[in-house]
């Protein structure tokens, strides 16, 4: 159980799920969750590389902490814009936002 490859595999799986979710989901909240999955995949990667390979065992953990903080800020901004979308369109379904074309 305790090998680098397993963690890398889990991270790649999370990342693929995230990419799939961004393209598949029609709800803005669903897309936001998918993006968070991708960020978490990067965190897992950083922690795994840090644990098994890196000479300085702090770097990966600092990265993960920063990613968590930035993801929180991103969620705040995304949710505020989603609220603005909901007020305007009475829906958070991305298919309702189709005015810009060409």
């Amino acid at each position: 159980m305790n090998s680098l490859n397993i963690y890398l595999f889990i991270a790649a799986l999370l990342f693929s799920l995230g990419i799939f979710g961004v393209f598949q989901r029609r709800s803005l909240i669903g897309m936001l969750i998918a993006i968070e999955l991708m960020l978490n995949a990067a965190s897992v990667n950083f922690m795994a590389f840090n644990r098994f390979l890196a000479p300085d065992p702090i770097v990966g953990q600092i990265y993960t902490l920063f990613i968590m903080g930035i993801a929180a800020a991103e969620a705040a901004i995304a949710l505020s814009i989603i609220v603005a979308v909901f007020r305007r369109l009475r829906s958070i379904n991305i298919e309702r936002a189709q005015e810009l074309r060409g």
Binding site: A11, V22, L32, M38, F46, F49, I82, V85, L100
Partner: peptide
Amino acid sequence: GIDVEAGVKYLMVGASASAVMLFGLSYIFG
């Protein structure tokens, strides 16, 4: 009305792109 639509598109594409970038950075670090 088109501004929030543009805003939310920009946000979703941008956030996905930066998540992809971060995943790439993790491999470079590894």
